[in-house]
Every structure is written in C-alpha cells, then in structure tokens.
Design a binder for these strands. Structure first.
Ligand SMILES: [Mn+2]
Ligand SMILES: [Mn+2]
Ligand SMILES: [Zn+2]
Ligand SMILES: [Zn+2]
Lengths: 144, 144
DNA sequence: TCAATTATGATAGTGATTATCATATTCAAC
DNA sequence: GTTGAATATGATAATCACTATCATAATTGA
C-alpha cells in the first residue's frame, strides 16, 4: 500500500490528539494524495465518492482540516471562491504563478526572494512565520 | 472640498461607462478616502451611515466594486473573513506584513523582490500582470 | 463485552456577498 | 421645465462555501 509515510503522519497525529481512526479519513487521505492537483473540498468530495459513495461532505471538510494541522496539506486562497488544498508533506515550499485565463498554476521558488523577504521583515523588527506569494498573469499556453 | 482628483476619477469612470451620478456614491467615496485604513465593506458601511443613515449595504458593495474598477481602491484578501479595501490611487504599490496576533498591517516594498518576481515569471514565459505578497508573523509591539 | 468517547452523515445555520425587484433619481431630449 | 428611458437605490431574498448541531454508528481501552 502506497503513501505509508503520509498515513503514518495522520495516524500519529490522530493518536496524539486522542482521536480515533476511521476508514473515511483514510479514503479521503489516499484520494487526496493520489491527485497532484490543487483541489477544492468539493472536487475532492467528488473523487472520494467514487471509492466510497456513502461519504459526506462534512467529513471531507473535517479531514482536510486535520490534514492541514498535521502538515500533510496546506491551503491556497486565490481570489473569491473555494479554498484549494495542495500537498505539503514531502514538497518543497513554493509559490505560484496563476494564469488569469486558464486557471493553471505554475509552481516556482526563488531562494533570493525568500531571503529578501526575511531581510524585509527584519528591517521592521517583525518575526516572519510564513508568506503567501501569488503572481497573476498569462501563461505561455494562453499567450499562444 | 478635498479629494478633487479622486472624485474626478470616479466621475470620469461613471460617465465613460454610461452610468449616472449619485450622492450615495459620493458619500461612500469621501468616507473611504478620509480613512487611511484597510476597511471591510461592513466597516465602511458603519462609517458612511454616520453621514447618510439612509444608505444601504448593497450600495456600499456596489460602490466598492466601482472604486476597484476605476483604480481608486484595491482588494486585500487575508485568510477567511471579509475582503478589505485600501486606497490605490496616489499610493505606491506595496505588500503587507500582517501580524497574526493583533492584525496590524505593515506596508512594505522591496524593489529587489519586485524585480526578482519579474525574472521568475520571465523564466516561465509568463506575462506577469500583478501579484499579492502577504507575509505573516509577529509584529514588534506583540513581541513585547 | 462494555461503556465512554469520538466519528459520521444529514442537514440546519452562518457570514459575506450577490441577485432581484419595486421604487426613486438622473439626465438628455424636447 | 417636463418627459421618459435608463440607471441607482434600499430592502431583502438567494447563493456560496463553509461550520455547527445532533442523532446514530464506530472505535477503543478496560
Ligand atoms: Mn502548489
Ligand atoms: Mn496597504
Ligand atoms: Zn493559461
Ligand atoms: Zn501585532
């Protein structure tokens, strides 16, 4: 069975919090991990239902919250509309170029930008904990 | 009467779009301009009502949309919760340090970061139109 | 096996925003 | 100035993405 590491992370998190195990959470986790996309709760719900049609949307929301808390997933908020979730564990930090035409995400990192953010925060005597950088524009494909 | 430039921008925008003028929009604009804060629609509504108690929240939302379209205001989305609006016309582009404790915004710019974003986008053959950089952490005051 | 505790699914409720609609205003043409 | 077609407004219903509630089911340590 794949995704052993990720499953262990969730199991440990659940145990540590005094929670109990459930098949639904496992189904949701595995479905989430199988897709490398930036999914909304609704989109993930649709996918999980193929494997387990009895599942409820509330459980998907509850599980996504656990995945974020345990470090397996992280939120992505663009404009209005639903929050999207992406893999976090085992993925390097990255920022996103978002195509305003087709909605495509391009994942990017620039170590220099990361460093300059630290410098910028330090100048304000601000303890930087994290950041979200979204860059909007037109992707290569959409430029034609 | 102050804010002549801004009023002209809205007037021109309204005329160009074939819309009509209204006192409510003027009240909302002037109230928005008088406050240098990052306001939500509800907060602005509360302020405008002091000057014009008959005004409706729907008109505040409609006007904020016009202000953004005409380049007088721009949206700021942090986490969940209401969208916030800040002055755009006559203000240099800037990004924000957001204190996760007190909610304070610190406005910052780093020309090098701006430039590196362009380089990053160019590398992906992506036409950059804009960006939103939010940096989260603890501000000087909250560190004590 | 048992009992305490947590998980689940259905669904009601919420908060922010948007749509609808009857009425009021604006404004160009007379 | 009056008119009338078009837009604006305020009240409020509707929507969207969640979040809370609750009765029932599953988990788990004793
Ligand atoms: Mn990503
Ligand atoms: Mn600002
Ligand atoms: Zn594209
Ligand atoms: Zn602070």
């Amino acid at each position: 069975m794949a995704f052993d590491e990720e499953q262990k992370i969730l199991d440990d998190f659940v145990r540590e919090k005094g929670l109990k195990h459930s098949g639904q959470r496992k189904d949701i986790l595995l479905t989430f991990l199988k897709t490398e996309k930036h999914l909304s709760a609704d989109e993930l719900y649709a996918l999980v239902k193929k494997k387990n049609p009895a599942i409820g949307i509330a459980t998907v929301y509850r599980t996504l919250k656990l995945l974020c808390e345990s470090g397996l997933s992280s939120e992505l908020r663009l404009g209005s509309g639903a929050v999207r979730y992406e893999h976090f564990y085992g993925h390097e930090h990255h920022d996103h170029l978002v195509c305003v035409k087709c909605g495509e995400f391009i994942e990017v990192v620039d170590p220099e930008i990361e460093k300059l953010q630290e410098r910028l925060a330090a100048k304000e005597d601000f303890s930087l904990q994290g950041h979200k950088l979204l860059m909007y524009g037109i992707c290569r494909k959409c430029k034609g």
